[in-house]
Amino acid sequence: MWRILIISLIALALIVVVRILFPFPVSPITVAAEPLPGLVIPGINLPITNSLLTTWIAMVLLIGFALWAGRNLKPIPTGKQNAAEMLVEGLYGLVESIAGPKWAPSFFPTVTTIFLFVLVSNWIDLLTPILAAVGFTEHGEIIPILRSPSTDLNFTLGLALISVVLTQYYGIRSNGLLTYLGRFINLKGIVRFFRVLTGKEKGNAFGALFMGLIDFYMGLVEIVSEVAKIISFSFRLFGNIFAGEVLLLVIPFLLSFLVPLPFLGLETFVGLIQAFIFAVLTLAFMSMATVVHGGSEHAERAAATPDNVSV
């Protein structure tokens, strides 16, 4: 016990001395991910940014985990297989509890991949204080080699687009194209107004017109909300993790030792929660889209619970 304490104190003292003797520069904080100098895939003019490189590392980590945990599955599980089963079974149970048994098999791979991908990406962000110091020097500034993908809008926006596009796909697949489009371009009320006007249907023409216009307007609002989803998805994740990165970079400049620890703990939690929110919101929106129109209000109320968590 005492030995560990003494060794820790010596290590801390060494770090203090080293940092005082050899101060090293830290990269400037930029919103855009920095392209690594000289690394461009020529044919498609794709600059390899540090966050893209980290994305590939995250993918390698996840695929490595899948290879390690998903091989040689036996009916009686041991060690690593227990971990894999717990993860998959837990997430599948979550998907099934929200989407129901009919759609769970369709939603599960997407939702789980989003969760795992974002989670690994967010937790790579915890290494920021180290990553920010390792890189190329260009024009007197450091360009870090690695940067969490969640702090790159290309990554978050890409996931948001996938989430929203898949939501539309499942909505159309479940309701049919016309029914699903009718949610956005709602002409039913106006058609009813004309039927009342021509005497094919009884009722108050003015009231029918009023309700028809309101329905049509609500449809337009739905379109706006779908577009807003893309923005809220991408910027919620980006904002949270980028802020965390800035926090983890700034705090060590104020007080280098021990003080950053609570913030690392906080960021671990935030990273988990943000990954969970991204996945569960995607799941909730997909479930809502698959509900047949008449029951949509009920589904919205059901989906309100995970939405509240995101605030």
Partner: peptide
């Protein structure tokens, strides 16, 4: 904001591969 179509598409492709 650092958003470029090339990188965006690459990230989408990344996700699909991972999926």
């Amino acid at each position: 904001l650092g958003i470029s179509p090339n990188l965006l598409i690459t990230q989408i492709v990344n996700f699909i591969i991972l999926l």
